[in-house]
Amino acid sequence: MAEFDYSQAIADARAKYGSIAKALDMDRLKAEIEQLERQAAEPGLWDDPENAQKITSKLSGAQAQMRRLNSASQRIDDVETLVELGREMGDDDSLGEAQTELASIQQDLDAMEIQTLLDGEYDERSAVVTVRAGAGGVDAADFAQMLLRMYVRWAERNGFKAKVMDTSYAEEAGIKSATFQVDAPYAFGRLSVEGGTHRLVRISPFDNQGRRQTSFAAVEVVPLVEATDHIEIPDTDIRVDTYCASGPGGQGVNTTYSAVRITHLPTGIVVTMQDERSQIQNRAAAMAVLQSRLLVLRHEEEAKKKKEIAGDIKASWGDQMRSYVLHPYQMVKDLRTGHETSQTQAVFDGDIDAFIEAGIRWRHEQRREAAAE
Rank of each mutant, 00 (worst) to 15 (best):
G189V: 01
A15Q: 14
G44T: 12
M150G: 06
I203V: 15
H230Y: 12
G86A: 10
R361D: 08
F216A: 03
L265Y: 00
D91A: 07
P205W: 08
S215C: 11
A173V: 14
L148I: 00
A170M: 11
L224M: 13
F188P: 00
R283Y: 06
H364C: 10
D207G: 08
L295S: 14
T344S: 12
D119T: 15
M287L: 15
G311Q: 08
I356M: 07
Q8W: 01
D235K: 11
T344E: 04
I20Q: 05
D312L: 11
I262S: 00
V131N: 04
R322C: 03
S292M: 11
T81N: 14
M89E: 15
D275V: 10
A9Y: 07
T255V: 13
E232H: 10
T100L: 13
L147D: 03
K58E: 13
L29N: 03
E124R: 12
A346C: 02
F180H: 02
T272C: 10
E340L: 05
G90E: 06
G86V: 09
K333L: 03
T236V: 10
M26V: 15
H230D: 15
Y257K: 14
Q279V: 03
S342H: 14
K30R: 15
A245M: 13
R368H: 05
F216T: 07
R283T: 13
D237I: 07
R298H: 13
P43K: 08
V129N: 02
R277V: 12
A52F: 07
Q53G: 06
E121F: 08
G311E: 09
K163N: 14
I76F: 07
F206K: 09
V138P: 05
A354L: 07
N282L: 07
R261Y: 03
W317E: 12
H198F: 02
E50Y: 05
G18S: 13
S104T: 09
D78H: 13
